[in-house]
Amino acid sequence: MTTASGNHPGIWSGLVAVIRRDVLLAWKRPGDVLNPLFFFAMISTLFPLAIGPSAEQLQFSGPGVVWVAALLAALLSLNSLFLSDHEDGSLDQLILSPQPLPLLALAKALAHWLTTGLPLVLVSPLMAITFQMPAGTISIMMLTLVFGTVSLSLLGSIGAALTVGLHRGSALLSLVILPLAMPILIFGARTVSLAAADDAVAAGIYFLAAYCMLALTLAPFATAAALRISNE
């Protein structure tokens, strides 16, 4: 971390401060963290009830269901990413601050991941066990979910920034982001299926990691541009 020179805060201090603030806010209001998790668990429960309890079918559809549930849970929470900041005016302060806005946007996305993506990854083994997933597959699934949820937080932050302050923003956010998120879903779910079939998984994991790096590099700039536009 860069040390502060004189009275000027370093370039990373804004990033750290925003992450700390958002995580603290989530800590004080645990409902915001738990709701997406309950949503995730509930979608994963809907499928066995709809498909039927046969172990073979559950094993077959498990990876897809867990991934779809993770995608929807992440989307649900993304809607409020900039909402409270927009309402109480702190978004204006973020934009006006001398700190580079892309870094602050990155901080918002990382804080979102820490408060929704990471808990989701941590509870996902429970869903996997109910879907009769073999133990060796679970670690692969968690790895794909780590890369996937980071990418989703970053990609989704662009959509959240574009739709902040709009009426019916949440439906719009899904409409805008879901088609763009398909590569994450395809590679995530497919890699877990391959792992369950004892097939080679390296290609899928490399792809997800590459996508995650690309999103880390480019998405903050798009989010910053979008924030400037929607907050004009």
Partner: peptide
């Protein structure tokens, strides 16, 4: 902004 984000993503979607 959305159109340009889409332009980056479309080749990735096709590939995947």
């Amino acid at each position: 902004v959305l159109a340009m984000v889409g332009a980056v993503n479309i080749p990735i979607i096709h590939f995947s």
